[in-house]
């Protein structure tokens, strides 16, 4: 089965419009790239696209009511929304230290989630 995919390379400001020719799930041809970075990007994006997820979780005792967190590595792109939704159900108590592991495995991805900042307790909370 022949399939064509269009991507925009994010390697540099050139933003090359890439076109991938895929036959039976395998990349046969990549065109439109001005340099090698485009080809590598296209392969990665086609075979295993992944993204860092950063969002916030509840921390009602904190200086701010939200704590920013992120996945320690990128998660598969298809899992991004599931990861965000799972994180939004969490709540943590202040104080929090930067880098503190919030969860070892978020939404079955095997990827840990850490705090992106230290968050002291709110001045008026016990």
């Amino acid at each position: 089965m022949l399939e064509k995919r269009r991507l925009t390379c994010i390697g540099c400001p050139m933003s090359c419009p890439l076109e991938l020719v895929i036959i039976d799930g395998e990349i046969r041809e990549i065109t439109g790239n001005d340099c090698k970075r485009g080809e590598a990007y296209a392969r990665q994006e086609y075979t295993a696209p992944c993204r860092m997820v950063s969002t916030t979780i509840a921390c009602n005792s904190g200086l701010w009511p939200r704590l920013p967190v992120k996945t320690v590595t990128a998660v598969p792109k298809a899992e991004v929304m599931a990861v965000a939704r799972a994180l939004h159900t969490l709540e943590i108590e202040a104080p929090v230290q930067i880098g503190q592991v919030i969860l070892d495995d978020i939404a079955g991805t095997g990827i840990a989630v850490i705090a992106c900042r230290s968050l002291p307790s709110a001045p008026n909370s016990k």
């Binding site: 950063s54 920013p68 992120k70 930067i98 992106c116 900042r117 230290s118």
Partner: peptide, 8 residues
């Protein structure tokens, strides 16, 4: 890094 990490 994220913004808060860079700041900290």
């Amino acid at each position: 890094l994220t913004g808060p990490e860079y700041a900290e």
